[in-house]
Design a protein around this nucleic acid. Structure first.
Ligand SMILES: [Zn+2]
Ligand SMILES: [Zn+2]
Ligand SMILES: [Zn+2]
Ligand SMILES: [Zn+2]
Lengths: 134, 134
DNA sequence: ATAACAAACGTTATATTATAACAAATTAAG
DNA sequence: CTTAATTTGTTATAATATAACGTTTGTTAT
């Protein structure tokens, strides 16, 4: 088994599966509850898996919600540059994949001449469904 | 005293003072510790003041740090549109005041045609000091 | 294969961040 | 003054996250 490939460990795979199946972002303790039947018993096991999955870009943390979502954008392999759309009403979250935006932000230079390798952007508004229902 | 002006309550003023005096973002329980000599005894008193101060745009929450910083940008009165520069090394945080950036983001329309009233952007990199020391 | 190292695991305890619930006090308006 | 709204004080508890420690597993190089 000389798989040079990036191979996830058991717990990492379990946690990733749950997050990928979910419709929206999941909270750590909700993940814990969901994986207890698979042998994961303690918060730390979940948090360690989350940390690794974030590191390799498989998931992202939605900071304003303390929740975790699967990456839907193959380009952000190292979680460097993320942007999300968050509905204030139904809490629906979507990763924004927009080349212009990511280029704009990656090339952004602030007033002091500083450039940034990494950013996280969270947009808030009403999603289409919620806008109609208003 | 018919001050139509937005007037802060006692606790709100105490908390705001601490945050404005600080060099960087403060955490809620660090604020609590700092204001105990002024009569604020419980976390809730701090969190309630923080909530109000955020609402009126006097301070912002740095989501990736669970910390609070005074607004340095008179334009974001209602905390709608915020952008920060965060140093990965020394944790220095600075609010970004850049008209082009804020216009770009406020006018951003995603692939589904959705526009956003509110956003929070956190840039990560090395500040000038830390870049030199490398 | 086996020694040496790194990564992941399991477990318990604890730290940190944030809110619920309820009653009392203060302030703003009619 | 009366009423409503906001703010306060207080206790308890919920929710989120990490420390510390020892064990196991996986990788790499002899
Ligand atoms: Zn992504
Ligand atoms: Zn919605
Ligand atoms: Zn501001
Ligand atoms: Zn720095």
């Amino acid at each position: 088994m000389t798989q040079k490939q990036e191979q996830l460990s058991k717990n990492q795979q379990i946690v990733l599966n749950i997050i990928e199946k979910a419709k929206g972002p999941l909270k750590a303790y909700s993940i814990l509850y969901n994986v207890q039947k698979r042998g994961i018993k303690a918060p730390l096991q979940v948090y360690r898996a989350l940390e690794k999955l974030i590191e390799i870009g498989k998931i992202h943390k939605i900071e304003s919600k303390n929740a975790f979502i699967a990456c839907k954008n193959s380009d952000c392999e190292i979680s460097k540059a993320t942007a999300f759309s968050i509905c204030n009403n139904c809490e629906h979250v979507k990763e924004i994949k927009n080349t212009k935006l990511s280029k704009y932000l990656s090339n952004f230079v602030d007033n002091s001449g500083m450039k940034y390798k990494k950013y996280n952007l969270e947009f808030f508004g009403l999603c289409k469904d919620c806008k109609l229902k208003q």
